[in-house]
Amino acid sequence: MTNAVTVSFPAQTQYVSLARTMAAAMAVRADLPIDQLEDLRLAVDEAAAQLVLDAVVGSEMRCVFVEALGSLRIEVRGMTTSGVVPATNTFGWTVLTALVDDVTASVESGEVCLTLHVKRHEPVSA
């Protein structure tokens, strides 16, 4: 069973904290250890910041959180002026890849989408 939660907010820096808070709350639901939780918070912050910096003025961003057993997929979506996927040879990208298990970037119907995958690294007893 999966559950998706979507948050949308104006593509401006001061709203990025909402995405961060939401990411942490979802990490609790997915029962991630707190070091992964904190990494995820940073990753969502970074992904959202990357899109916000280049966001189309007046546009909205969306974060979609999909929780499955012991794992979490987060899509950070927004319209950017360049409309292309971010370069992968940047420090920002290095940060993203280090913080989560997998990151992919795509462009879907004009929106840039960064998808982050996190899996619980170690089994947690019930």
Binding site: I34, E122, V124
Partner: peptide
């Protein structure tokens, strides 16, 4: 021998996971 989850910390302290999360935040 690993980082605990919020739930585990909450259970140990005897508070809700929300409280733990808020403190961590």
């Amino acid at each position: 021998h690993r980082s605990p989850t919020v739930r585990e910390i909450a259970d140990r302290v005897g508070v809700s996971p929300e409280d733990v999360l808020e403190v961590l935040e």
